[in-house]
Amino acid sequence: MTLIFGHRGSAGTMPENTMISFQEAIDAGADGIELDVHLTKDHIPVVIHDETLDRTTSGTGNVNSQLAEELVLLDASAEFPEFKGKAPIPLLEEVLEWAASGDSRFIVNIELKNNIIEYSGLEEKVIALVKKFDLDERVILSSFNHGSMVQALKIEPRIETALLYSDGIYKPNDYARRAGAKAIHPLLRTVKDELIRQSRESSVSVRPFTVNSDEDMKRLIEWETSAFFTDFPEKAVQIRKSLS
Results as ranks from 00 to 15, higher is better:
residue 20 I to C: 11
residue 22 F to W: 09
residue 22 F to R: 06
residue 25 A to Q: 04
residue 25 A to L: 03
residue 26 I to A: 07
residue 28 A to L: 00
residue 29 G to P: 00
residue 37 V to F: 01
residue 38 H to P: 00
residue 39 L to I: 13
residue 40 T to F: 13
residue 41 K to I: 06
residue 46 V to M: 12
residue 48 I to S: 06
residue 50 D to L: 04
residue 54 D to C: 02
residue 55 R to Y: 03
residue 55 R to H: 05
residue 57 T to D: 11
residue 58 S to V: 09
residue 59 G to T: 04
residue 60 T to H: 14
residue 60 T to L: 11
residue 61 G to L: 04
residue 63 V to P: 04
residue 64 N to T: 06
residue 65 S to N: 13
residue 66 Q to T: 01
residue 68 A to T: 09
residue 68 A to H: 08
residue 68 A to N: 05
residue 71 L to I: 13
residue 74 L to R: 00
residue 76 A to I: 02
residue 81 P to S: 08
residue 82 E to P: 07
residue 85 G to W: 00
residue 86 K to H: 13
residue 86 K to M: 14
residue 87 A to G: 00
residue 93 E to A: 13
residue 93 E to V: 01
residue 93 E to T: 07
residue 96 L to M: 09
residue 97 E to N: 07
residue 99 A to K: 02
residue 102 G to H: 09
residue 103 D to I: 10
residue 104 S to L: 15
residue 104 S to N: 13
residue 104 S to H: 12
residue 109 N to K: 03
residue 110 I to E: 10
residue 111 E to W: 04
residue 112 L to Y: 01
residue 114 N to R: 08
residue 114 N to S: 15
residue 117 I to E: 12
residue 119 Y to F: 15
residue 119 Y to A: 09
residue 120 S to A: 14
residue 120 S to F: 14
residue 121 G to I: 12
residue 122 L to R: 10
residue 122 L to Y: 02
residue 123 E to S: 14
residue 127 I to R: 10
residue 130 V to S: 04
residue 130 V to H: 08
residue 134 D to A: 14
residue 137 E to R: 14
residue 138 R to S: 12
residue 138 R to D: 03
residue 140 I to E: 13
residue 144 F to M: 08
residue 144 F to Y: 11
residue 145 N to T: 11
residue 148 S to E: 02
residue 148 S to H: 03
residue 148 S to A: 15
residue 151 Q to L: 14
residue 152 A to W: 01
residue 152 A to R: 01
residue 154 K to I: 12
residue 160 E to S: 11
residue 162 A to D: 02
